[in-house]
Design a protein around this nucleic acid. Structure first.
Lengths: 357, 357
DNA sequence: TAGCGCTTCTGGATCGATACAGTACGCCGC
DNA sequence: GCGGCGTACTGTATCGATCCAGAAGCGCTA
């Protein structure tokens, strides 16, 4: 039989409450008695108050949940996700809370719902989950603080988020390329369509994106708007969907664009990870980035600098840290619950003027 | 007032137990009633059984804890740790469990102890934590399954671990270099001494390592044994401690060895991350890896292949997956609770024969 | 129609702690 | 000597569910 508070209380000859206080409110009892209690606990092998029981009574768990779309196991593959998580972790640590990673598998929606139901947490952080995912409703119905790691297209007055102006940032990429003279442009992005396949897709416009992660739509909208400054219309864009947000699929997707007869002079990738794949695809074809084909990414992960990738820098760790802080200590002021972070266009060697032949 | 099981039960006019069954054992009641209950729950905004209360009663939480030495926020910086975590995550996901990351800050030992006490989990996975860390005792006293992500030097009969034969693997590195003729050898490692400083250290032998992460000691022992085959004695080794397991500190540490008058012909790093730093240090000094100075790592992280680093390959993801499986479903057979994985010496361009001048 | 087995539902006990109101007691000032 | 006050500790109610023994209802058989 495992020892409980009562076991220790009986051994010392005090009440259960007093033992509880010895752990949770040491100032409520005399040092002598406290020591006696701790001594008895050691002797009996009592590990301290049971976290579950304590949580139930206190109504506080001491952990925050992070929801991921992709299988939990992929959470660690995207450097940007890792940086974000690190920020969340920093906040949680400062607050003495743990981080519960909650799988939200795509194949089995019911499993995700169950996971959210069962998650013992004080709040949820939602990272790149499509707005339609059923688990989100469950998350909301739990009535816990919830912060989105991106700006919802239509933020409610009391919703919390920390994000960037995706469209505006993407616009700077588009207009950068437009100014460099690019007119034949391809875009490589994941989540353009609901299926996980890699290949060209045709869309009537950004609003036609059938998979409802707002980030994708907004970035595409921004790209298009920026490029329009150079007279590039939506129908001029060659869109390739990438099955997953990975370097390998980025390379595969880029192939569809690069192997065309009228090869684009610029390839815009929606994440750095995909962009690195695009660079790989250039390399295997003997094409020079920034010279033969310009390439851009998004996020400015550490590898981007080394690869000389032009990209949008957004403060990933800080974003996570703020998300964590919002969750653990939601500000009274509704305005403070919605945070927009600044972004910068970082121009590196992977973009250059289009060649005049 | 938030709705509870009772609220729903009253609304439908059944007992609390029946509502509970509607969620947890759907086969125990008629489909009609079950639907009625779910309908009422929806109407009342009841999110399903409270995870905390459920855990208390069931005695099962549905999450496993992962303990880290370094601050939680660094858990994501070492690619090897990330791979391992991914494996653990895969197992947890399959089992419908979450992953609770538990910070074990080094500065504030008490905070770590508190974190372990408060962690609502069904088991702990310990990853690279010094055997002396006070939080480990607390972990054990919780009486939960516990699996170490490395082989303890003296495994108890009932302890669980998944690891590799560190010393044997390291020995192959040492003898590889010995065979290539290397006699002036430096070793770059973190955790050689308790302090977090970067610089040369003097030790009487592997057993003299004052920081008790067994892995460090065992790998060093292996290096030494392998090198001894070429007649290199312990006192011939130039040891440099790295403040942290990072690329930058690896480069700094390597500097101490490379800038000596009698520059070593080989530098053995205890992790790939440090080894990449050593390669950086070579590059800034215009030295050729494998030609001027041979360099080895340990772990075979993805970047190692790209860098042409000779290293020890160990199955990181699989290691994590097995750790997770051991935790969630401890085998009856004690022998099956202790898993040793195979390793390979992967020879790449970063090692070569010592130059005869 | 009594007896049996099966499904469906009930109600009290229980998981292990914390909150809070209350008691006991010593000490101070007047 | 007594009210007032602070400190140290107690005891009961409570958090929100699950477990389990048992009751009710129902069909079937002998």
């Amino acid at each position: 039989m495992k020892p409980t508070l009562q076991t220790v209380a009986d051994a010392v000859g005090v009440s259960r409450s007093t033992v509880s206080n010895a752990y949770s409110r040491p100032d409520q009892l005399s040092p002598a008695l406290r020591e006696k209690i701790h001594e008895a606990a050691r002797r009996l092998g009592y590990p301290g108050p049971d976290p579950t029981a304590r949580s139930l009574r206190r109504g506080r768990v001491g952990a925050i949940g992070v929801l991921f779309t992709s299988a939990l196991s992929y959470a660690f593959t995207d450097p940007y996700a890792v940086l974000f998580l690190r920020g969340v972790a920093e906040s949680a640590e400062r607050h003495g809370s743990g981080l519960l990673l909650v799988p939200l598998s795509e194949a089995d929606e019911q499993a995700g719902i169950e996971a959210v139901r069962n998650a013992a947490v004080d709040g949820f952080c939602v990272y790149c989950v499509p707005a339609s995912h059923a688990a989100l409703d469950v998350t909301r119905s739990r009535g816990l603080p919830l912060v989105a790691a991106e700006r919802p297209v239509e933020p409610g007055p009391d919703s919390m988020y920390v994000g960037i102006d995706e469209a505006a940032a993407a616009r700077t990429v588009g207009s950068h390329l437009a100014r460099l003279g690019h007119r034949r442009v391809a875009i490589v992005s994941d989540l353009l369509v609901a299926e996980r396949r890699t290949g060209p897709v045709a869309l009537d416009g950004p609003a036609d994106i059938r998979y409802d992660v707002d980030v994708t739509r907004e970035r595409l909208r921004g790209f298009a708007e920026g490029l329009a400054e150079g007279g590039v219309g939506w129908s001029d864009l060659f869109l390739v969907n990438a099955g997953t947000n990975s370097r390998a699929e980025g390379a595969r997707a880029a192939g569809y664009a690069l192997d065309r007869a009228d090869r684009p002079t610029a390839v815009l990738a929606i994440t750095d990870l995909l962009a690195l794949g695009v660079l790989d695809a250039l390399a295997t074809r003997g094409l020079g980035p920034g010279r033969d084909v310009s390439v851009t990414g998004f996020d400015d992960i550490p590898e981007a600098a080394a690869a000389g990738l032009t990209t949008i820098r957004q403060p990933a760790v800080e974003k996570g840290a703020i998300a964590g802080r919002l969750l653990l200590d939601p500000p009274e002021d509704p305005a403070a619950r919605q945070v927009l972070l600044p972004t910068d266009l970082v121009v590196r060697a992977s973009t250059g003027p289009v060649e005049r032949k």
